[in-house]
Amino acid sequence: MRLISFALLTFLAAPVAHAAPTQEDVAAARLAYIEGDYDAALKVIQEGAEAGNAMALNILGAASLDGRGVAQDTDKAIEFFERAAKAGEVRGYFNLGTLFLEGSPPVEQDRARATREFQSAADQGYAPAMTALGRLQETAEPPNHKAAADWYEKGHKAGDVVGTTNLAHAYVQGIGRNENWIKARVLYTEAAARGYPRAFNDLGVIHEEGYGVHMDQLTAYSFFLQAVNAGYPKAGKNIAELILKARFPWSSKHAALGYCIWAVRTAPDAEKASFQEDCEALVTEINPDAAMRERAERFADQL
């Protein structure tokens, strides 16, 4: 009996091994992390990463790069992304490509490394990487627009909505593809059907200017409005200018000014100055008094 008791005590005193989080656990933690519940999410994600889970390693890379829930550390981010990629997470390659394309102190921009990482992801069929390779070709010195459009088409066929929209733009511009407004409209419509904000905006431009379709300011307004509702700043500026040009009976100058104010507020930092300049020109044209400015501000607050 004493032997049995001793064995039982020994068993109870032994450390209990915890099972590593399952893929479902990590996926749920990823959603919690996206929602901002960092503490609870990162506990599961870190345990998953320690066990070699590729998704968890990739999330830790993103967390380290952004400094959300953990200290910002670009070198650690690279390490986690590399480990994730080696463990089979294709987005690890893509995130490495994005990091080296943009640069993140103390890591400088490295387009050659970015190209290699995007290529590794594209080789595994990852559509956004194909589009990214197209963007690299388009922004090269000198640019290779034909190669860019080829990659956009690959991205489009693989299901990337940005690739679809960029390919449409190539047809609009006649750069990298022969100008073809019908193909462009079909591609923009496909991207818009998937909810891509820029596609709504560009369809608005097509209908406002009559590119390959009958000029239709009402349809243009509808597309710009959908882009605004989807949070696309440039559409705010475009709809403001259209309101003044078309003189719609249901809209007004204060609404035009409100859309422009919203566009400036929501524009990326790198583009704010350009948006501000365009809206100042609109203000000069409208010449609003204090009451109209106040109504426009309230209108912008509601968007």
Results as ranks from 00 to 15, higher is better:
105 P>K: 12
23 Q>C: 08
75 D>S: 10
125 G>L: 09
281 A>Y: 12
298 R>P: 10
132 A>G: 08
87 A>H: 00
220 A>M: 00
165 T>P: 01
280 E>Y: 07
182 I>Q: 15
86 K>Q: 09
295 R>L: 11
147 A>M: 08
123 D>P: 10
74 T>D: 11
202 D>Q: 07
118 F>Q: 04
110 D>Y: 07
51 A>S: 08
167 L>H: 01
244 L>Q: 00
238 N>A: 08
222 S>Y: 11
66 D>F: 13
32 A>N: 12
206 I>A: 03
6 F>E: 14
182 I>A: 15
35 E>G: 03
142 P>W: 02
245 K>Q: 12
87 A>T: 00
57 L>F: 03
265 R>C: 09
58 N>F: 05
187 L>F: 01
113 R>T: 06
6 F>G: 14
248 F>D: 11
146 K>P: 10
6 F>Q: 14
222 S>D: 15
183 K>D: 08
142 P>T: 00
153 E>L: 00
57 L>P: 00
292 M>A: 02
138 E>W: 03
200 F>C: 06
219 T>K: 14
153 E>S: 06
134 G>T: 02
253 K>V: 04
203 L>T: 10
42 L>F: 00
63 A>K: 02
134 G>K: 05
8 L>A: 15
123 D>L: 06
195 G>R: 07
252 S>G: 13
249 P>N: 03
96 L>W: 02
43 K>T: 13
